[in-house]
Design a protein around this nucleic acid. Structure first.
Lengths: 201, 201
DNA sequence: AAAAAGCCATGACAGATGTCATGTCGTCCG
DNA sequence: CGGACGACATGACATCTGTCATGGCTTTTT
């Protein structure tokens, strides 16, 4: 019997997924959580075999939870399900020790199969997402460029970005300019959206 | 027995919701669809009592489907479930004749209850979403302002917005300026994000 | 009919932004 | 060690944006 922890902030979906997994004879949902922090706390107590975690949650993001889980509970395999499959997330997730990565568009038997796969030591990444990740290419942005671009995402003026990043406005403009060049965009806002779409920030 | 049509592009979630609804004695999921168009086509054939539709789908958006359904199949009550509850959507949905509006964070028994409520002629809107919608207030943007702001969302330069809206760049700047004033933002990008958050565009 | 409001446009001006050249300071690597 | 590279900064310049004043045109309201 494979003991599963389920974390998703959408009750409806979490409950529904639990119902689905319960239909399988060899799977058992032993705990559920609605936030990242809750998932971690619960996992420490119930020590599940497999953690099925939603990527986007109110507090901690799924990858952070996976990272913590990987170091604290090496016996627990983590897999991530997500609605919006952004390539960058996949990379970060894999780096965080995630064993399975699925969009929520898969069917329920795939989910069950992947749970078994990761539990037995295997890995599974949705083919479509993998293809996207490969085509997105590596992140060409330097760490600072990424920082600054991220702040630019909200549409803040350069002054504010500079303050928030503790940089001089001129430096911010340089980073932004270089990022705009690397993304092929025509201004920082477009560049920020682009980088976000690629999962670079 | 209440006959239900279920539409959601995420197979996993649709299947799971179907499993949940199937647990209720008086509910029966008679059809499922993965896109808006498919939902419409299916509804015409099976004529369900209640349509449970996801707000965001690849092609037609949930509200559009609801609108079409309302005119073509007046006997079918439509309700919408969504992950990202934006106030503007609620207003549009209600205007389109939707009878129920829920975030996916609700529990499964609420879902079943609401299905029964809308089927018996009642209405139900998630209290939290309703509160948000009220606090968001009415859309102060004129239609053109909204159009232009929407194009600005993607970060395009004014030139391109002007071309896409068939306006002169100067006019675009005027609309944008006025929209920036109405939203209290400090530039059009911030204004666009703000308006989006309010569901104004 | 007059007033109000929205739609479209132009022109002018200050300030914000994008681009480029240039330079300093560390760190890492061959 | 010397070179390459990234982080950080400044200054200068052209261009883009935001704002404001102004005006014409249509539709709705009073």
């Amino acid at each position: 019997m494979i003991r599963i922890l389920l974390a998703d902030d959408e009750h409806l979906i979490r409950g529904a997924m639990a119902a689905l997994l319960a239909l399988e004879d060899d799977l058992e949902v032993v705990a559920q959580a609605a936030t990242g922090a809750e998932a971690l706390a619960t996992a420490r107590v119930v020590r599940p075999d497999v953690a099925v975690i939603d990527l986007q949650m109110p507090d901690l993001d799924g990858v952070s939870v996976a990272q913590a889980l990987a170091s604290e509970l090496p016996s627990c395999s983590t897999m991530i399900v997500t609605s919006h499959g952004r390539p960058g997330h996949l990379k970060r997730a894999l780096a965080a020790g995630v064993r399975g990565f699925l969009p929520k568009t898969v069917s329920s038997d795939v989910l069950a199969t992947v749970v078994r796969t990761v539990h037995s030591g295997g890995r599974y990444v949705d083919p479509a997402l993998a293809a996207e990740a490969i085509s997105a290419g590596d992140n060409p942005l330097t760490p600072r460029e990424a920082d600054v671009l991220e702040l630019a995402l909200e549409g803040a003026p350069i002054e504010e970005i500079a303050r928030r990043a503790s940089l001089s406005p001129g430096t911010v403009r340089n980073y932004l300019s270089s990022a705009v060049g690397k993304t092929g965009a025509s201004n920082r806002h477009e560049a920020a959206r682009f980088a976000r779409a690629r999962g670079w920030i």
